[in-house]
Amino acid sequence: MKRLLLISLLLLSGCSSEPASPKGDHGNADKPKVALIMKSLANEFFSTMVKGAETYQAENPDQFELVVNGIKDERDLGRQVALVEEMIASNVDAIVIAPADSKALVPVLRRAKKAGIVVVNIDNRLDTEVLAAEGVEIPFVGPDNKAGAKQVGAYLASKLKQGDGVCILEGVLTSFNGQQRFAGFAEAMQDAGIKVIDHQTAEWEMSKANTIASSMLSEHPETKAVLAANDSMALGAVAAVKAAGRSGEVLIVGFDNISAVQQAIRDGKILATADQHGDQLAVFGIEKALQLLQDPQAVVEDVETPVDLITQESLTK
């Protein structure tokens, strides 16, 4: 009987679990878990960001764990909100997010912060008015999209004549980065005395940009250039210009510096783009998150990251 009692006690001891972590303790403090939540991973720009983050984690395996999530369609706001909720439930230490919408993601990110999770905003800045209304501070780590677009626009303007007409393909209208890129393009055109004869959203999508650019070229045959708020739309414009038989006549610029556009620039199909160093952008956000985890009392400040003009000349240097 004593032997049976001893075996029973040993079995009970072996089946016991660790005590649950107290509220606010998000796991191993020596190795925090960072969730990277992206927009569409079908877009090369965001897949490049993920590869950069994974490479950084592999080079620093003792510093943090990385969990990567993304949505299939950049307009699927509901799924991105659900991903944040899943990460809250998973008890991650930090969320680094490229929000698909500047306003819609703020409430769920406020809940994440209330749960004790560090939140860092990358790529597309969250709306400052909505953040203030929700009473939450979230640092933005990313480039000045307006300045980057203005650089690209000014370079394009140097290849045009005063009075020429251009069209602009905008991103998702509720995305701050899309708004800022449109503003930068428009300001560069105004400064150069060039007319914006049409502008429409193609919602970051190549196929939609192809359709809209085709319509623009048909309706406005005087178009001398198309300015696209991202490189996927620029590639859509390239196809539209080719289909219209106007390759070499209509100049095209983009924004993001994805590899396909680098080749198109070398081939003379696209004039220029802006490089916001996508391979490092998520890394910059992760570094900010780790800093805030180490010092929870640190002042929440934005971090401006570089953005550079990319042309045929710069690619051949």
Rank of each mutant, 00 (worst) to 15 (best):
L11P: 01
L11S: 04
G14F: 15
S16A: 09
S17L: 03
S17P: 00
E18Y: 00
S21V: 01
S21D: 01
S21H: 04
G24R: 04
H26A: 12
G27I: 03
N28E: 02
D30F: 01
K31V: 02
P32I: 04
K33W: 00
V34R: 07
L36M: 12
S40E: 11
L41N: 14
F45G: 12
M49L: 09
K51D: 08
A58S: 10
E59M: 10
V81S: 09
E86V: 01
M87W: 02
M87Q: 14
A89Q: 08
I97M: 12
P99L: 12
L105T: 11
R110T: 15
R111D: 14
R111F: 05
V118I: 13
N121T: 12
V130K: 00
A132I: 10
I138H: 03
V141I: 13
A147W: 01
Q162C: 09
D164G: 04
G171C: 13
A186R: 14
I197P: 04
T201W: 12
A202Y: 02
E205L: 11
K208W: 07
I212Y: 07
L217F: 02
L217N: 01
H220N: 12
P221I: 03
E222D: 13
L227M: 14
G236P: 06
A237Y: 06
A237P: 03
V238K: 00
V238C: 00
A240H: 00
A244L: 11
G245E: 14
G245K: 13
G248I: 02
E249M: 11
L251C: 04
F255K: 13
S259V: 15
V261F: 10
A274V: 09
Q276M: 09
K288Y: 13
Q291Y: 12
L292D: 00
D295H: 05
Q297C: 00
Q297E: 12
V299E: 15
D302K: 05
T305E: 11
L309Y: 12
Q312F: 09
S314L: 10
L315R: 15
T316P: 05
